[in-house]
Computed example of a mutant assay.
Amino acid sequence: MSTANPTRRRLLLRAAAWPIGSALAAAGLSACAQQTPVRLAVLGGLTGPVSDLGLAMRDGVLLAVELARAAGRAVELLEFDDAQNPNKLPEVALRMASAQVAAVVGPVTSNIAQAWIPLAQQHGLLTVSPAATSDDFSGLDDQFFRVSASTSEYATQSAAFAVQRRGWRRLALIRDDSNAVFTRSWADFFATQARSLGATVAEPVPYRGPLTPLQAQTVLQQALEQQPEVLVLVANANDAALLAQLARQLQPATALFAAEWASSRQLIVRGGRAVEGMLVAQFVDRNNRSESYLLFLQRFEQRFRRSPEFAEVVAYDAAQVLLHGLAQQAPDETLKATLLRVRTFPGLQDAITFDDYGDSQRPMVMSEIRNGRFITLGA
């Protein structure tokens, strides 16, 4: 992905390793740096199998921080790469604590969030996730907030759309258990809802991604043995694209449906003609016409020379929650207490309102891929 300032990007990527003393000394050299900047951290898979989401999240946060600095806020962004590997997180948490970050945006996937939440609690790292939606995180009094709704909300709504709106009665699921804390619960909620509406749902076919073409063919053949009307893919964009390509070869009449994890442009880029007509659940309305969202699109495209995806939007929202919260934080008040006191924060498309446990709601949007674009479907 290109940016308007590659040198600055490289500096930001090294920022997590800067000694705190040298960072403060550098800040002191500037006549305009009259106060120690507030440090925000972004935590995501900046390398590894789903780096498209991690980098997209980082860019959404980076834009929010740059706009805050342009408005006179003393804010610094530090980047931490989890490489989609939970084993890296204890060391990451220690580095964040040493850097005295005020709060964290991330992670973007539920399997990383599952390992991160206890560490955030241990080190007092207030965390706002853009897209870790597993129900395992709901109703917990901890340091973890999120700006998207839970898996149960999205999966049950997806099942209702598939059965009631499209009339499908035979469904098969494929799920990626490398992110099992998300995919298993999504598949379970989807299947339960679809069956309650009279559909037949085969037992999900699991795998651990990333997929090779040979593995994908094996997984697909197992799912297609059920002769489903629709194949539901609970997978990331790259794997969903590969599965779609092979499905079009093996059984082209079968409809395709993807959970929101796959809803980045990588699905279209890698899937090509094979993903045309695929339904994709989303929690961002790409056709939204609100003033705040249109202004965000303009600013993002000017800064990064590309259009944002869902991860950039929800990450920007998460960063804005923290920036608004820090601006309203009272003396001797924790940031967590501030977020729970303020409760409602502006979002690009919808207001973000937290409950007592830092959970929130974000409407699901159903889309269909047509002519290489995600087209929002009406209610």
Rank of each mutant, 00 (worst) to 15 (best):
Phe144Gln: 03
Arg9Thr: 14
Lys336Arg: 13
Leu339Phe: 01
Pro228Trp: 08
Val105Pro: 03
Gly106Phe: 12
Arg14Ala: 12
Ala4Leu: 15
Val313Asp: 03
Val284Lys: 00
Gln217Ile: 01
Leu62Asn: 07
Gly124Gln: 09
Ala27Arg: 02
Ala216Lys: 04
Ala180Cys: 09
Arg343Thr: 13
Val163Phe: 04
Asp177Trp: 05
Glu312Ile: 06
Val75Asp: 03
Val61Leu: 14
Gln122Phe: 13
Leu11Gly: 01
Ala16Val: 15
Ala97Glu: 15
Asp350Trp: 02
Leu13Asn: 01
Ala68Ser: 10
Arg170Gly: 06
Leu29Tyr: 12
Arg195Val: 08
Glu368Pro: 00
Ser22Asn: 10
Leu43Tyr: 04
Leu335Phe: 07
Gln221Ser: 09
Gln222Cys: 04
Arg8Val: 13
Pro90Met: 06
Val205Arg: 00
Arg175Gly: 10
Val105Trp: 08
Gly139Ile: 09
Ala115Pro: 13
Arg14Val: 03
Val205Glu: 02
Ala70Val: 11
Ala318Asp: 06
Ala262Asp: 07
Pro90Val: 06
Gln226Ser: 12
Leu256Arg: 00
Pro130Leu: 02
Ala113Gly: 05
Gly48Arg: 00
Ala318His: 05
Arg370Lys: 08
Thr151Pro: 00
Trp261Arg: 03
Leu220Gly: 04
Gln121Lys: 09
Pro107His: 11
Arg265Thr: 14
Tyr357Ser: 03
Phe354Glu: 00
Glu312Ser: 07
Ala202Ser: 13
Ala202Pro: 03
Arg9Ile: 14
Ser138Met: 02
Thr7Ser: 11
Glu291Asn: 09
Arg373Val: 10
Ala26Val: 12
Val181Cys: 11
Ala337Val: 10
Gly54Gln: 09
Gln329Pro: 07
Ser110Cys: 05
Thr218Gln: 13
Phe310Leu: 10
Arg208Met: 06
Gln193Ala: 09
Gln157Glu: 15
Asp142His: 05
Ala194Gly: 01
Ala235Thr: 13
Gly325Ser: 11
Arg146Gly: 01
Asp59Ala: 07
Arg9Val: 15
Arg69Thr: 12
Ala241His: 04
Glu79Lys: 02
Glu312Asn: 05
Glu66Ser: 02
Arg166Gln: 09
Arg265Pro: 10
Glu225Trp: 06
Val92Tyr: 08
Phe80Gln: 11
Ala180Arg: 13
Asp317Lys: 11
Gln226Val: 05
Val101Tyr: 10
Arg165Phe: 05
Trp18Val: 10
Arg166Val: 01
Ala26Tyr: 14
Asp82Phe: 08
Ile117Gln: 12
Glu225Arg: 12
Ala120His: 13
Ile352Ala: 01
Ser263Thr: 07
Thr47Met: 09
Val275His: 00
Val234Met: 14
Arg175Phe: 12
Arg95Gln: 15
Gly167Ile: 09
Leu377His: 00
Ser30Phe: 14
Ala223Tyr: 10
Ser51Leu: 07
Ala71Ser: 15
Glu301Leu: 07
Val75Tyr: 04
Ala74Tyr: 12
Val50Asn: 01
Gln217Asn: 07
Glu301His: 08
Pro49Lys: 02
Gln222Phe: 04
Ala4His: 15
Ala319Ile: 15
Phe283Met: 01
Ala113Trp: 05
Arg208Gln: 12
Thr183Tyr: 11
Pro213Gly: 05
Thr47Arg: 11
Thr109Pro: 06
Arg341Ser: 05
Phe137Gln: 03
Leu214Tyr: 14
Leu46Met: 09
Pro107Trp: 12
Ser196Trp: 08
Leu243Trp: 06
